[in-house]
């Protein structure tokens, strides 16, 4: 099947005026400006198939939202080709945005002073949704997102979580094939996050909506996405399955051991002592070199173990390491 998104060698460069320091500098900046070129997106290529749910992650300023804005038709790139749903987003903005939905975390698409329901009804006309389909969708989303308790409340009085639910509903009313979610769980409590994740999962599975999710919260990615793309400095560092990311980079694991008594010498071959606190010792080992049971064997050959636990490298750590460039030698990255 043809991919819904095809991006080839995408570039977006910005000219940014260099700020001079101090009063005199500001004055000189008025007269003559020096510009610096920032490569927000610096040669990215990828394809996304219909129905995929992709996590797009990267630190602040990595080029995430620039990419999303280009895909959504808001920004025109400096170079490269982008085809979304058979269209070049920025060339056919109106027909393109009619087929996508977007929620940009902190901003609402709803009318501030209107009750939620009236905003949604207005969007029915904006997107020209047939009344029957609008009713059906609204009924479904009201139930899924539990909107009923605040449908009549003006948007300005909603809590962040409620507003996000209302915005998700607004983004889906016209049955978009493609949904962009930029930080949909930012600032929400655990329960609210979970409700939103469930919604995302359901619309992806039940409606086949292709979803691109950018987030700081890696547990969003862990719980929702099979595929993850990691971007930094405008380049794609990793594009693949989450499990592959773990396998490839997640060799490091930790084992916390509680000994029967305090030993003077706890070092063993194949593992590094990370911390030591009385009878509790934390080892770090590389899963590719030694298995957990081998390590347990080596330790228990010398000392008596009372209890232990093994911790998987969590993806937050992995991603941090990737950003830090420690694992950058990935052969097929970029």
């Amino acid at each position: 099947m043809a991919p819904i998104i095809k991006v080839e060698n995408l570039h977006k460069h910005f000219k940014v005026a260099r700020h001079r320091r101090g009063f005199l500098g500001a004055f000189r900046g008025l007269v003559s400006r020096e510009y610096e070129t920032v490569r927000a997106v610096d040669g990215i290529s990828f394809e996304i198939g219909r129905g995929e749910l992709v996590g797009y992650i990267g630190p602040n300023g990595a080029g995430k939202s620039t990419t999303i804005k280009i895909l959504a038709g808001l920004l025109v790139p400096t170079g490269g080709t982008v085809i979304v749903n058979g269209r070049v987003p920025w060339r056919e903005r109106k027909s393109h945005v009619a087929t996508i939905g977007a929620v940009f975390g902190q901003r609402t698409t709803l009318w501030w002073d209107l009750p939620v329901i009236e905003s949604l009804e207005l969007l029915q006309y904006v997107y020209d949704v047939p009344p029957e389909r609008f009713r059906r969708n609204l009924a479904e989303f009201r139930e899924m997102l539990e909107l009923d308790q605040f449908l009549e409340t003006p948007v300005r009085s909603l809590s962040l979580g409620q507003r996000m639910r209302a915005d998700l509903c607004a983004a889906m009313l016209h049955d978009p094939m493609l949904l962009f979610l930029d930080e949909p769980t930012i600032g929400l409590d655990v329960v609210a996050k979970e409700r939103i994740r469930q919604f995302i999962r359901r619309i992806n599975r039940e409606r086949g909506t292709t979803i691109i999710l950018t987030t700081h919260d890696l547990s969003d990615v862990e719980k929702l996405c099979e595929r993850v793309m990691i971007i930094d400095h405008g380049r794609l560092l990793f594009d693949g399955e989450l499990s592959e990311l773990r396998n490839r980079f997640g060799g490091e694991r930790e084992m916390v051991v509680y000994f029967d008594q305090e030993y003077d010498e706890v070092a063993v071959d194949g593992a590094e002592v990370v911390s030591r606190n009385g009878k509790r010792v934390t080892y770090r080992f590389d899963g590719h070199e030694i298995t957990a049971s081998e390590l347990i064997g080596r330790i228990s050959a010398r000392h008596r173990i009372r209890d232990l636990s093994v911790r998987e490298a969590d993806i937050e750590d992995l991603v941090r390491k990737i950003y830090e460039g420690r694992l950058l030698e990935a052969p097929d990255a970029g």
Partner: peptide
């Protein structure tokens, strides 16, 4: 950033 929201609508 409201202008971005405006650009996102098919009008």
């Amino acid at each position: 950033g409201t202008l971005d929201q405006i650009l996102l609508r098919p009008l």
